[in-house]
């Protein structure tokens, strides 16, 4: 497994309790919180209390509270919209509880992502699909496909900038089609080469 993989994602190194707890425990905790949310949502003050606990979680992990707001920032207007709509259709309590619960879950999930190295999460995925072996799912193939996909992100991004540069060198066009078609064709050819390389290493045997 590539060593650099954990620096690609959103994971932030640390040595707190939350960093040391196993990935399984954190994910199960998240599932439990998600299941409990249906019940928690009926009391607005409970939602705010759990949100407070998540804030404590960020502090325990050694992150500034601002990092938690960074997780929520892309959806802030949607949260405001949901608050107004729920207040308008029901009451102010639900106007707090519903968007509050969404923010709590997203922030808690963000905490799991920030404190768990990607290699640990890949191990969870590979082991979790183990029982699917009888349905023809090969866990090793799943793991390899994940690694291949992660590797393809910088490869395709590099390909995209090459195609873009070539396009600019030829003409000053901004046509998306003139960019996307050569990119996709080159990507298809690359995929053929990757497939051949895998077959040459005995992948399909």
């Amino acid at each position: 497994m590539a060593i650099g993989i954990n620096t690609l994602g959103l994971y932030q190194q640390g040595s707190s309790v939350l960093h040391r707890v196993s990935a399984w425990a954190k994910l199960i905790g998240l599932v439990v919180l998600g299941a409990a949310s249906i019940w928690l949502q009926s009391r607005w003050w409970l939602v705010l209390a759990v949100l407070g606990l998540v804030v404590v979680g960020y502090l325990v992990a050694g992150f500034p509270v601002g990092l938690m707001f960074k997780q929520l920032r892309p959806m802030i207007w949607l949260l405001v919209f949901i608050a107004v709509m729920n207040w308008w259709s029901f009451d102010w309590q639900r106007g707090i509880a519903v968007p509050g619960m969404i923010a709590t879950l997203v922030a808690a999930a963000g905490l799991v992502t920030l404190t768990t190295p990607m290699s640990a999460l890949i191990d969870v995925v590979v082991r979790a699909v183990g029982p699917l072996r009888r349905f023809g799912v090969d866990p090793e193939r799943v793991g390899l496909t994940l690694m291949l996909g992660i590797r393809c992100v910088p490869v395709v991004a590099g390909l995209a900038s090459e195609v873009r540069e070539a396009q600019i060198a030829r003409t000053a066009t901004h046509s998306f089609r003139a960019f996307a078609v050569p990119l996709l064709v080159r990507a298809l050819r690359d995929a053929d080469a990757i497939g051949d390389a895998l077959v040459a290493r005995g992948f399909d045997d």
Binding site: T145, G149, C152, V153, V155, A187, A191, G195, D196, L198
Partner: peptide, 14 residues
């Protein structure tokens, strides 16, 4: 097969 896995991975990259 391997070629399909490669296509799947490359299009995830796309």
């Amino acid at each position: 097969p391997a070629r399909d896995l490669a296509l799947i991975a490359v299009f995830a990259g796309i």
